[in-house]
Each structure stands twice: as C-alpha cells, then as structure tokens.
Design a protein around this nucleic acid. Sequence first.
DNA 1: AAACACAAGTTGGCTTACTAACTATTGATT
DNA 2: AATCAATAGTTAGTAAGCCAACTTGTGTTT
Lengths: 145, 145
Amino acid sequence: MTHPSDSRAYFFKIDTTIKKIRNVLQKRFNEAGFDLTVDQWVLIDHVARNEGISQNTLAELTTKDAPTVTRILDLLVKKDLVERRMSEEDRRKFNIYLKPEGQKTFETVLPVVKEIRRQGWGQLSEEDYGHFVRIMDSIYQNFSD
Amino acid sequence: MTHPSDSRAYFFKIDTTIKKIRNVLQKRFNEAGFDLTVDQWVLIDHVARNEGISQNTLAELTTKDAPTVTRILDLLVKKDLVERRMSEEDRRKFNIYLKPEGQKTFETVLPVVKEIRRQGWGQLSEEDYGHFVRIMDSIYQNFSD
DNA sequence: AAACACAAGTTGGCTTACTAACTATTGATT
DNA sequence: AATCAATAGTTAGTAAGCCAACTTGTGTTT
C-alpha cells in the first residue's frame, strides 16, 4: 500500500466499528428488557441533560436531522417517556421534557451504557484517546470545506 | 474526565465521522450525476472485484445482512447495473455479475471515491494509520466475546 | 399595515438496518 | 429412500436517515 488512503479500509473500518457498537448496545438493551432503541436512548440522554431543549437543538446535538428527531420523539411520546410543551416565547417551538417514566428509564439505562462504554474502550490508554480524537477530528475537518 | 471511556464522546465521534463521510460521498455522487447511493456503490465495488460472488459472501464482506443485500441488489438489477445468474452447482444460490453498464459505472465512480478517500485522510501519517487501525480493531475486539 | 424572507416542525417518499418468519434446496441421518 | 437439520435467499414489519415540499409563526422592510 503506497499510502493509507489508497485503501478502502478506513471508511470500512469506521463503518464496521460503529455498527458493532450499535449492535452490542441494542442487544444489551433487549437482554435487560429495555423497550428502547439506541437512537431513542440518545434523545432521552440529551433531554435528561437539557430539560426544555427544543427539537432543533436536539437535532444539532445529536447530528440527526429535523424529521428524524420529530419521528423519534413521536415514538417516545407514545411510550409516555417524554412530552412536548408548547414554548411560551415562540409558538413554533416545543420544549421537550422527560416524563416520570422517562426519568426512570434514563436512570436505569445510563449505568448499562456506561458499562458498555468501559468495555469498548478496554485497555486503551489516555494517549490512545488523544490519537483517536485527533484522527477522527482531522477526517471530519478534511471534509468540512 | 477521569477515564476516556467515561465520556459519551467516543461513540458519538465515530458516529459523527462516518455520517460525515457518507454525506460527502453521496453529495459528490449527486453532483457528478451518478444515480447511485453509497451502499449501492459498495456492492458494485465488491462485485467488480469478485465476479460471480454469492449474495451471502457479499453480505459477509460488506457486513450487511442478507435482506439488505437482497434489496440493494434488486435496485441494481432494476437499474441494469448487475445481474443474478442461477448457480450451476447449487440452485439455492445466485452468482452476481456486473452488466456492461455496471462495469462502466464502476470505472467512472472509482476515481471519484479514491479522491474522496485521499481528501479525508489528508495529512495524516502512516503512523496515524497504525494507531487508527489498532484502536478501531481493539474496540471491535472488546465487543466480540 | 402588508409583504417579504426566514425559522421550527411536520409529512411523504425512498433507502438501508434489524428481526422474524417463510420457501426452496442441499446434505446428513437413520 | 425418507426424514431432518442446515443453508441461500426472499418477504414483511418497524425504525431511522436523507431530501424536498409544506404549514405555521416570527421578524424585518418598506
């Protein structure tokens, strides 16, 4: 290989790794009896940390687009985990809040997710984390022009 | 941060990076007038390098599941880029081949993809590639038990 | 005040991912 | 030879991603 970027490998490796992570997360959720998809969890996590957040902000933070957020929230509302409250200042907006069931879900699922994060990182070092962040950010940046 | 794995950041960073890559690929495809999704490209690429490959093998190589491969191939067949030929030895199997249009597509798209790979890797070094592979493989491995 | 562009969310269409259930064929077992 | 388990692929349902078009509400301009 004359230059790493000549290989298909790096796109593929990122894709494979994130798929694996998602699979493991979902499988653990199912085993633990959580009736929740990974992306539903991601929204709950952000709402828990930003009570009253708007859908647009939620979309930005999660790098999901607006229609996707709308639809995932629809599901979470149907499950009674989350509610939309009309915003006072701007009637185009909703403020999103956890309902009691949602708060409970957050508290129950969080430790499981933390454990999975630990497992995934394993024996990798602080220095590796530096490399990791630098390389990922660099790829992202190289595409942002 | 007491330990890197305590942070949500690494799942999120991988997710964000692969999304970005996919977006850029798709946008370039569209700009270049290729009527092709990224995943359709991935299958064409593998068929081009493995004429006569079976659907199952295709699924393994791409880490897609069987139904997904079936459906993407359906689309490629409809576009006349690819054909299924009944296997001689095993009548459950198909052998997948590029049609002339598909071969042309492969040759046209490949240089564009190579250029995008180069752009994404940018000034990262051979050594960085080593770190990258080691870290990704390690995460994957940590989840394979 | 009326017209305008812009912003927040929603809806619809198409694509891909995952699971489960299904058909058809093959290969092994007895 | 008949049965049975495993394999290749398909179909159906639900979830999520992307784009484009749309509705409603806001803010600015004139």
